[in-house]
Structure formats: structure tokens, C-alpha cells
């Protein structure tokens, strides 16, 4: 199973605010921000090779607090995820260009910061085969499955860009026992029978 790189996007759009009844005397930061949110999806759908997993989500729009004032600033936040380092950094430049130039064209200015986070998890093909074989030997082929790509991120990715790595999952849910909450929720828990398997499988991975 592979996981994505994750970078954080912070945008500030600044323009001359003013009376909402006189937009011609302002640079409408709300409208400009809206254009930017939509335009950024073009990078995912048009610049990216469609076979290459990529997600760009704008997750916050903040600014303004009443009906008749065009605000002087709108702030956006979001996340950019990919599974290819070359495309990842090319996309950063495209994102910055879209934001800065679109804002400028529409009479405002934009500042953008992209905080570079974890690289994608590169599961080594050979090690994946070893891990799968080890898992099948330890708990039986029926109990091993290959999971799908996920666009979540894991800092294990750092190791895998230095040496061959393999990230694998230990099933810990149990529907019959009502252990079904997902990770990152206040009710997440595990079926503790999994611990015996987890510690044994880890030992077995290291010795074979």
C-alpha cells in the first residue's frame, strides 16, 4: 500500500475593500478568492497526467463579516497531495503562478506559502512481495490482502526515499465485537487479539 505526499497551502488575497454597492471602486477579494478556488482544480484536471494520483483540496475560506462591505483580505488554506516527487514540485510552481497571477489580473495581490510536508510512501516492489509472502506464511493466505492506494500521508515516506521500505497494515477491527470506529475518532479502539499477531508478524518480517 502506498500513501501520498502532503503539503499545506496558505494563501492571502489582499485588495482595496469598500462598499459592497460600489464594486467598481474596489478589488473584490471574495470574488477573486472564488475564482482562485475553482481555477486551482484546473491544475489537477488539466496539468496533471490523469494516471497520476493527485488531490488538491481548499479547506478553509476566511474573511469578511457583514453584508455590505467587501473585505480587504481573504485567507484560504488547503492541502496538496501527490505520489510523484517531480510532479509534486512542478505543481507547487503552477499553484503559486495561478494564485499570484489571477489575483493580479483581477486587481488584487496574493501571497502564497506552501509548507512542504511528508514525501509519498514508496513501497518497494521487491519488499512488498517479501512482506506479502511473510504475511501469508504467518497467518495464512486468506488473511492477507493488498490494500488500495490512499491519499493519506505518513512520515514513514521519508525512510522509503533513503532505503527500500514496506509499510503494511494490521487488521484490528472486529464487526461482531462492535469495534468499528475509524482512526482519528474519539471512539477508536482495537481488538486486542491483534497484538499477538502484530508482534509476531513484526518479528517474522525481521528474520526472513
Amino acid at each position: 500500500m502506498s500513501m501520498a505526499s502532503a503539503d499545506e497551502i496558505y494563501i492571502s488575497i489582499k485588495g482595496k475593500g469598500g462598499h459592497a454597492a460600489s464594486p467598481h471602486l474596489t478589488a473584490d477579494t471574495v470574488l477573486i478568492a472564488s475564482h482562485i478556488v475553482i481555477s486551482l482544480q484546473q491544475i489537477v484536471s488539466r496539468n496533471n497526467n490523469p494516471t497520476n494520483p493527485t488531490v488538491l483540496s481548499i479547506t478553509a475560506i476566511n474573511g469578511g463579516n457583514t453584508t455590505n462591505v467587501i473585505p480587504g483580505e481573504i485567507k484560504l488554506m488547503g492541502t496538496f497531495r501527490a505520489m510523484n516527487e517531480e510532479w509534486r514540485f512542478k505543481a507547487h510552481e503552477l499553484i503559486k503562478k495561478h494564485v499570484v497571477q489571477l489575483a493580479e489580473t483581477m486587481g488584487a495581490t496574493a501571497e502564497i506559502k506552501i509548507d512542504v510536508g511528508y514525501p509519498f510512501v514508496l513501497n518497494d516492489e521487491g519488499l512488498y512481495k517479501v512482506a506479502r509472502k511473510n504475511g501469508e506464511e504467518y497467518i495464512g493466505a486468506d488473511n492477507v490482502e493488498t490494500t488500495e492506494l490512499r491519499m493519506g500521508a505518513e512520515d514513514f515516506g521519508y525512510y522509503t526515499h533513503h532505503i527500500p521500505g514496506c509499510f503494511f497494515r494490521l487488521g484490528v477491527g472486529n464487526i461482531e465485537k462492535g469495534i468499528v470506529s475509524n482512526v482519528h475518532t474519539p471512539t477508536f479502539n482495537i481488538d486486542e487479539q491483534g497484538i499477538e499477531i502484530g508482534m509476531g508478524v513484526m518479528a517474522w518480517m525481521a528474520t526472513s
Binding site: L127, I163, P164, N182
Partner: peptide
């Protein structure tokens, strides 16, 4: 220097759902 590295992560559902 390790030749390879493994990590285990809990997986809360028995079958993968996205």
C-alpha cells in the same frame, strides 16, 4: 545502515473501504 525497513500500522476495518 539498514538494507530495508518495515513498519506496521493498525487498520481499523476488516476489509478496506475508502
Amino acid at each position: 545502515k539498514p538494507q530495508s525497513i518495515f513498519a506496521l500500522h493498525v487498520h481499523p476495518v476488516c476489509h478496506w473501504v475508502s
